[in-house]
Amino acid sequence: MEMAEEVYSNLMREIKDGRFVWTGELEPAKDIDEAIEAANELKGLVTACNVTDNPQSFAAINSLAASYKIQEETGMECIYQLRCSDRNRMALCSDVMGAGILGLKNILTLTGDYVSLGDTPKAKPVYDLDSTTLTRMIHTLVHEGKDISGTEIPNPPKLHVGAAAGPGMDPLEPELYKLKRKSIAGAEFFQTQVVYLPETIDRFFKGVKELGVETPILVGIFPAKSYGAAKFFDEYVTGVDVPQDFLKNLEATKQIKDKEKRKEEVDRVNIEYFTGFLEHLKGTPAVGCHIMAVGYPRIIPELKKIIE
């Protein structure tokens, strides 16, 4: 068996078994407790959870430390996110080797938001590597047992490297070429930015097919636990258009005074929207869903019913 065929994580096991895979997202910020609580809530609902690395360029608890702590304390398998914004190639390499000895099994490589977007705008942006060369560096560490300088390492980390994709990018073509490049660099799975529109998914998978990319892709979805959460995505996240009908239906729930009834209505709006979306997704090559519903785990069993 070739090394590339080895499976180290539950995430990769389920992808290879051809099961529809669900991943979640944890956002440790300046404190870890909430993320640990959320990981406990997501147990049994998703196969693994992404642990964000300085999201939106706000300095947060180190994602390597957080991934390890979450995995140790909750048993939730982590997808350790690693961005190029804040570390040079030496630091990235040492962090990945560190992830290996801490028993982390998946890494997601990211370029990272520009530093000026967050709470530390005067920081020196690094970007010594980019998501493609970081992916290749990790692939080389795992599969060739060589670090960034080409030096052989005795116990290579045993983990899988994934990368991100943006189905809603405009123009889409440069993004598709980058996706292909990252698959050549060794990406074993992709998780996409949030998508709401079936036509965005179709356009994306058509391009993926034309470029001959066969790497498994999990499509990002964002069931919104409130109108505000959906509105934020619509306004501030590039490449994501939230459908106006969905937004309007969520906005209408704000009128409901009774808290429990409002929650029920928010759930109903989400289920109604995502039933159509997930039914559509079944007919695409997507191997799973990455659910970025931070703080909204109760919706996940309902979504899984649609697929199963």
Binding site: D113, M169, P174, K178
Partner: peptide
Amino acid sequence: AKGLMNGPCGGVRE
């Protein structure tokens, strides 16, 4: 802005 040798990044605007 990020000086990427293999871009674009995920932040390209419309």
